[in-house]
Design a protein around this nucleic acid. Structure first.
Lengths: 218, 218
DNA sequence: GCTCTAATTATGCAAGCGTATAAATACTCC
DNA sequence: GGAGTATTTATACGCTTGCATAATTAGAGC
């Protein structure tokens, strides 16, 4: 009935921010489902309901889009962990516990996040720009952790000099990362909350304090 | 003088084992240098001084070659860690310490290994075959670790029931993985041996024992 | 030294990739 | 409501990729 051939796709103009977010979200979907190799320009565009050319309008090159997506993932995880702190009790030990538990449970401990993370990490060695992006993210996370550790130690009446807390931050960061990895890779072989419990117990042992606020909680 | 155009490449026939090893080694070089994306059939072939067609003669598909390379990396790291045990003292605590130290030093803690590992891990989620390959490797590592832990606890006169050692193995595995990660990603911001020391100290705290053999060693 | 075969090379193809660029269109402002 | 512009689509190009297949050749066995 309609004799006109191949009608042109209709579209709406969106704000720059919205479009960038959508494209990044579409990229993350692709990576999560089919790995970094599955995140082609065409696939991303289709997922964002947009034609491939538009990607280049917002991101000069595909690598720029990938880099932006990486930063978005890391930022999202950081924000989610920080959110857990907002709702935590006042006692520094409880706060450290909440931080650890948040990082070792949904939605942060998720296979999708691992796929994304690993895909990007594999590029770090080859791409200097991505290397520095990662470097910053790592130190930021460890610094935040070190502050929590220092305050928890003080609350427990323990010394908290920097050379101690630095070492502790390195070790505890490793515990969190390692358990996160285990959980993402094979969450099905662990009981619910087992990894968070294990992590808290290990951290208590390393610090030599209990993370349960003493003298009864609220 | 020589009018024949484009002389054909001369070659030697090699044994099947040698060729497979060479191709895997070439694959690992490519991945290490330029990431998984840089490991193209042509590049691998060139690095192995062979024409691309030969790869298909030994590996039905490129994914098979990649999978074989992954298993080779994991196997190599496992062997290197086990070697350290051969040269360790008899005391189980020393052996555990040697195991940890070996995993957190050269040549296991190397950025190249991380790139390889991460590149493969990113595929785990999408490729079931690779998922099972990884699953086996992970459990193998953790089982070996659990044995070392049990014997170290016994040597220190501590209880070592399975439900305890399982938890300890999970936590200590995380410590090793996490520190390995940190070291591979940013080895330059740590002193020599700092991560191994940190790891041993953290593990001692978790187990509640010293890993230095008591009563003076040889 | 000839023969036979398995190992290796050479060539080519179809598909998918990232990117460039020109044409079309939705929205803004007057 | 008409003109102008920033956004979006459409199209195409040049490359690279993995894979197939036919032609060659090194080396083993007699």
């Amino acid at each position: 009935m309609n004799a006109q051939s191949a009608t042109r796709k209709t579209f709406r103009r969106e704000g720059e921010d919205k479009r960038r977010e959508d494209l990044i979200a579409a990229t993350l979907e692709c990576v999560a489902e089919r790995g970094l190799a599955g995140a082609t320009v065409r696939e991303i565009a289709q997922r964002a309901d947009v034609t491939p050319g538009l990607i280049r309008y917002y991101f000069p090159t595909k690598d720029d889009l990938i880099g932006a997506a990486y930063r978005a993932v890391m930022n999202r995880m950081t924000v989610q962990a920080s959110d857990a702190l907002q709702n935590a009790a006042d006692d520094p030990r409880s706060r450290l516990q909440a931080f650890v538990t948040a990082n070792l449970g949904e939605p942060i401990m998720d296979p999708h996040n691992l796929s994304l993370w690993a895909g990007f990490i594999a590029l770090v060695h080859a791409d200097p720009a991505m290397a520095s992006a990662h470097h910053d993210g790592y130190l930021g996370f460890r610094d935040e952790l070190e502050i929590l550790i220092r305050e928890a130690l003080r609350a427990a009446g323990k010394p908290a000099e920097h050379n101690h807390t630095r070492r502790h931050a390195i070790a505890i960061n490793a515990i969190i990362d390692g358990l996160w990895l285990e959980g993402c890779l094979a969450g099905d072989i662990f009981d619910d909350g087992e990894l968070a419990e294990t992590g808290v117990a290990a951290i208590e042992a390393v610090l030599g304090i209990s993370l349960q606020a003493e003298g009864g909680a609220q």
